[in-house]
Amino acid sequence: MTGDAASGEPAIETHGLTKRFGSYAAVNGIDLTVPRGAVFGFLGPNGSGKTTTIRMLLGLAVPTSGTVRLLGHDMSGDLRDVLPRVGALVEGPGFYPYLSGAANLNRLDTADRYAPSATRRARVDSALERVGLGHAARKKVHAYSLGMKQRLGIANALLTPRELLVLDEPTNGLDPQGTREVRSLVRSLAAEGTTVFVSSHLLAEIEQICTHAAVMSVGNLVAQGTLDELRRVGQPQVRVLTPDPDAAARVFERLGLSPASVDDSDGTAAAATVTAPLNDELTDPDSIVAALVSDGVRVRGFSIERASLEDRFVALTGEGFDIAQ
């Protein structure tokens, strides 16, 4: 944690942030708060307004209404002083194809007046090393694969030490190894005290690295908080794997766990899964197993599962292709 963290100013704070294109509200009055030091997952299906929000955070687009504060500064005025402390990957990498990877980073680094020219070469090289592109530094970017361009984009965000990183879909186009490397990179940056704001439509990624998350749907912020807070909203489920599903269901009902549902679609006729919502206050989970066993129900597996972030995500944003537009 840094001295700045102690000041209590969030890394990102928006109030009533709105962006309209004509009559269509791409972002509709969102209040986003990203605490310092957090790894903040910004979730939402494609077209939910994530990238538009990020463009407004970085001063690329002007909000129709509402305010943005980054690192304690108002973005409508202090853009020039704040942005050098922010590294960003916005909507995919963008590079000059006829320049090498290193030359591209050099070019973008010269645009930052606070980036010392004396250390430019060394900083470019170390950023490239950090994303595993050291060997391809002198290669022209048009010869890069999509994954390499993506890494180069991340390297650009790391040219100078940053207090805040905004990474829009950082694992797009990366293979599974690349995805894992990005995750461990984000973890190591967070460990150094950098606040990381990651947008993604892939939940699995977010769930593994984030401390906080927010969910966007059709331009609205529908949930926000720590990962635990988000998961807690859903009701936990009791799940029993047993060869005697009917008997188990009867025990569940006696204990007031209803409605119990039986699922034997596992393909193994020998056992089925019996599931029921668990009402936290009423039932002690340990007593359930005891009741099952004393009734002669053979228990092969028992678990209490909270809603995964994915269940929560789908519940908030709709399922499949009929996502509201």
């Binding site: 942005l83 050098p84 916005v90 963008g94 000059y96 973008l108 645009a111």
Partner: peptide
Amino acid sequence: SAGTLRYLLVAPAGRVRL
């Protein structure tokens, strides 16, 4: 069109300076 404009501005190059 190359996608570099947003990165120059986020660097930040400054719009007038650019």
